Simulated assay, not measured.
Amino acid sequence: MEITSYPVNHYPDLIERLWIIDNKAEDTDLITPPSQYVNIIIPLNQSTYTYNGEIKNSPQIEGLSLQSSCIHYPKGSRFIGARLYPHGLHSFLDIRGEEIMNKSIDFYPPLDVSIFNKSNSDVERLNTIYDQLKKMFIQKNYDEANLVRDYYQYFRKTESMISIDEYCKEHNTNYTSLNRLFSKIIGLSPKRFERLIKFRRSLCDLIDSEESLTNIATDSGYFDQAHFIREFKYFLNRTPSAYQNLIKAADKETNIINYNFRLL
């Protein structure tokens, strides 16, 4: 299975990447970890796939997840999509975060898949995604999400973690107001969302670096290794070392890449 990522030419503060999945060889099963991203998924040429046991054959919105998901891609299936930052969808659709959390739902209003199938190249298909999103863009929603967008970028990138209360003081707001925004746009409280961000940061380091678990825990913003292990088990029901061994074993057998992770 080939997964190709493409740089973002429009809405870079809302879209993390565009991607194409082309499963030419054989039926493929993937287990995806909890994620703060939202995906727009468009099946091409009547392709289907299975998401947690449910067959999907139409454009989907796959929400933020606090649990692992099982996905089955049949041989010959092909998909195009956009991976949005957690606040990104709010600028295009009036959907509350909790409505899509841990779910994959039919895209509404429906997308016309035929315009993607009629395109002569993948470049045209990618540009069609931008065209569709441009028609859907809601300026007032974009403005409303400004604080959430800034919060996410800060906690995702910074190496010097500050408390949420300190963040609120720096941005002339309070936790109640921030929580109200997060509940509407993300579907999680800021504190719970921060836990997910830390977990994802630690997961990236666990897979892609040779650092010790102690260093990974510190770099990801955990108090100590014990705190890191507790949080990791909360999201994946495995210790970091056990999951690291699982990834290494899977990589030797399959070398499957799921967006940015090598997974079983």
Rank of each mutant, 00 (worst) to 15 (best):
D131E: 12
N39D: 14
K140S: 10
T48K: 15
G97D: 03
N57L: 01
R83D: 09
T50Q: 04
P110F: 08
S104P: 01
Y51G: 00
R125D: 06
R96K: 10
G53L: 02
Y51R: 01
I115W: 13
R78C: 12
S69Y: 07
N52R: 01
Y130T: 00
N102T: 01
D143V: 10
S114W: 11
S91K: 00
P109V: 01
I105M: 05
G76K: 04
L126C: 12
L89Q: 02
M136W: 15
R96W: 13
L66D: 02
G97E: 04
P59C: 06
N52D: 06
V123E: 11
Y37T: 05
S104W: 03
V123R: 15
I105V: 09
N127Y: 11
P59D: 05
L126N: 10
L64G: 02
I42E: 14
Y51N: 00
Y73C: 00
D131F: 08
F92K: 01
Y51L: 02
R83V: 09
F116K: 07
D106K: 15
N39R: 13
Y49D: 01
R83L: 10
T48M: 10
D106C: 09
N52A: 00
P33S: 13
T128Q: 14
Y49L: 07
I95S: 02
Y108D: 12
F79S: 07
H72Q: 05
L133R: 02
S58D: 08
P59I: 04
S68V: 02
F137G: 02
